[in-house]
């Protein structure tokens, strides 16, 4: 029962983070919000008894994607200064 409650909470927070990611003006917040979305998703996977996927999502989904995003953002912000 507790798991369902936790899952609902996680679900809502992922959706909130997703909305933030789409509608914020600052790009940096958007990227961090995407990282957050994928982090919450990996926790959701844990709840759904899929540890492998959770680890991958955490490592690749939130870790590497956000990293590449930040590098690219840094590169682009660099250009127009």
């Amino acid at each position: 029962m507790i798991f369902n409650l936790l899952a609902i909470l996680l679900g809502i927070s992922t959706i909130v983070f997703a909305l933030v990611a789409i509608y914020t003006k600052k790009l940096i917040f958007a990227i961090l919000a995407t990282g957050g979305v994928s982090l919450f998703a990996s926790i959701l996977y844990l709840l759904m008894a899929a540890p492998d996927v959770a680890l991958t999502e955490a490592a690749i989904g939130s870790g590497l994607t956000t990293l590449i995003f930040l590098f690219i953002l840094n590169k682009i912000k660099e250009e127009d200064v």
């Binding site: 540890p51 492998d52 680890l55 991958t56 490592a59 690749i60 870790g63 590497l64 990293l67």
Partner: peptide, 14 residues
């Protein structure tokens, strides 16, 4: 244990 080539590789890359 859970995890494997991709996850390990990702950790090394990070």
């Amino acid at each position: 244990s859970p995890g494997g080539g991709f996850q390990g590789g990702a950790i090394i890359a990070s």
